[in-house]
Simulated scan of single mutants.
Amino acid sequence: MKTYRIYINDNTLIIADKLPEQTETIQMVEEKGFNFKTFYEKLGKLSATPYAIVTEDPKTLFRTIRKSLTIIKASGGLVSNAKGEYLFIFRNKKWDLPKGKVEKGEGMKEAGLREVEEECGVKINSNNERLCKTYHVYEMNGKLVLKRTNWYSMTVKGVPRLIPQKEEGITKAEWLSAADLKPVLKNTYPSIVDVLKAGKLIREKV
């Protein structure tokens, strides 16, 4: 099944060739005549609702939506240490993973490594395979922006001390085991949950 998830504030737009199985009620959206900007404007800013468009060709519909938006590329990492713990940051009153915008002339993988090292004061030992991509839509200077973030699996040697980059609004950086993720899952972004699923830290709901 080919599925795209676009996160808009606390809402999710799922584009898929069949309806995903999940516990929440999904609001169906008609594919015919769909206009993303109109859809965005009608969304309640505070309602955490999953919406879905079921289409025979999710890739083409997603590309059509993407063309109507301004694209920003970002990259980040799910970093593990020698004890099998994972690096989390606390920023804007939510748990997050280190990430940032790709600079001109920079590769996605290279950008993810640089952002992690800058935001947490660590030296990355290995920057492995890409785990997933996430998509987040927001307004910037009156335009709708689609931020596409590539997430990579990374490692460090030993258990280095973390230095949160305060000027980037990061108030904490911590190593957490997979068993200690309950506070994170209660207070993080849906896109981060997707990264944790891709990294097999949490299981998909059956």
Rank of each mutant, 00 (worst) to 15 (best):
131 L>V: 04
119 E>F: 08
111 A>V: 02
110 E>D: 07
154 M>S: 08
157 K>H: 02
139 E>A: 12
192 I>F: 13
117 E>G: 11
176 L>H: 08
135 Y>P: 06
114 R>G: 01
116 V>M: 00
151 W>T: 11
145 V>S: 01
137 V>M: 12
185 L>T: 03
141 N>L: 08
155 T>E: 01
156 V>H: 05
164 P>R: 07
161 R>M: 14
177 S>Q: 07
170 I>M: 13
149 T>D: 04
137 V>L: 13
156 V>T: 13
156 V>P: 03
138 Y>H: 14
147 K>I: 03
111 A>P: 00
158 G>Q: 12
155 T>Q: 13
132 C>H: 04
142 G>M: 06
119 E>C: 06
182 K>N: 09
153 S>Y: 03
190 P>R: 01
122 V>P: 11
178 A>K: 15
132 C>K: 08
164 P>F: 07
178 A>V: 15
151 W>N: 07
161 R>Q: 11
190 P>D: 01
109 K>N: 02
176 L>W: 04
141 N>G: 00
121 G>L: 13
186 K>W: 11
194 D>S: 15
113 L>G: 02
154 M>L: 14
184 V>E: 00
173 A>P: 06
168 E>Q: 06
142 G>N: 03
193 V>L: 10
152 Y>T: 05
151 W>F: 12
134 T>K: 12
148 R>T: 10
165 Q>D: 14
189 Y>Q: 09
136 H>W: 07
164 P>M: 10
112 G>F: 00
146 L>A: 08
153 S>L: 14
127 N>A: 14
162 L>W: 05
160 P>E: 11
120 C>G: 12
116 V>K: 01
128 N>I: 05
155 T>R: 12
178 A>G: 06
155 T>C: 03
117 E>N: 08
126 S>W: 02
182 K>Y: 02
151 W>G: 10
128 N>L: 15
133 K>H: 07
149 T>H: 02
143 K>I: 05
187 N>E: 09
156 V>S: 09
129 E>W: 10
148 R>Y: 03
120 C>Q: 14
165 Q>G: 01
173 A>D: 08
151 W>S: 09
193 V>Y: 03
119 E>T: 08
117 E>L: 05
165 Q>V: 09
181 L>C: 12
130 R>W: 05
151 W>C: 10
167 E>W: 05
110 E>C: 00
111 A>I: 00
145 V>Y: 00
159 V>D: 07
170 I>W: 09
137 V>S: 09
153 S>E: 10
174 E>H: 05
165 Q>T: 05
186 K>G: 07
117 E>C: 12
191 S>F: 11
